[in-house]
Design a binder for these strands. Structure first.
Length: 160
DNA sequence: GCCAACGTTGGC
DNA sequence: GCCAACGTTGGC
């Protein structure tokens, strides 16, 4: 199975790239995904070792800021069971979990963030999910070609 | 803060 | 199954 590539969004005011870097082993459970399509990508398609573009949304500027990798298969998101969590969902039962997550590990910080505006001007990213109007998916597939374009533009030549 | 676009819910 | 209402996302 060839490696796949993804883009994952996070609001830095909630969880930033630098927050990830301070986690033990630069690794964190990607809590809080509450969208079925995003969940299904994690559940059905993500494999350990897949590449991740780490994107800061609702920030200034919005940008890809780091390269990460998938560090586990999908497993139940414990925050869905936690009544004190903002991600609590009473419909998700221990014996029938509705929401899943994967572990994410930081690999490399971009020398400079690649902003949304820069991405829009790069050739070869026309069909990138992130750049589609109204795109809200927080876990998105990225093609190998898009991955290469982004890493080249970021000045990264030996990722993962 | 605004608001377009989107996903989900629930009445019918 | 339809679709209006609602809540959320996220760029600006």
């Amino acid at each position: 199975m060839p490696r796949r590539y993804w883009l994952m969004k996070s609001e830095p005011s909630v969880f930033s790239w630098s927050d990830l870097l301070t986690c033990p082993n630069s690794t964190t459970p990607w809590e809080g995904v509450r969208n079925y399509q995003a969940r299904n990508y994690m559940r059905d398609d993500m494999q350990v070792g897949d590449g991740i573009l780490f994107y800061h949304s609702s920030s200034d500027p919005t940008a890809i800021v780091g390269i990460a990798r998938v560090a586990s298969r999908a497993y139940p998101d414990p925050s869905a069971f936690d009544q004190h969590s903002k991600y609590y969902d009473a419909r998700s039962k221990m014996d029938n979990p509705q929401w899943l997550l994967v572990d994410v590990t930081a690999v490399e910080t971009l020398p400079r963030p690649l902003t949304l505006d820069q991405l829009r001007h790069l050739p070869g990213l026309d069909s990138m999910v992130l750049l589609k109007k109204g795109s809200r998916l927080s876990v998105q597939p990225v093609s190998i070609d898009e991955w290469r374009v982004v890493l080249e533009a970021a000045g990264i030549h030996h990722p993962i």
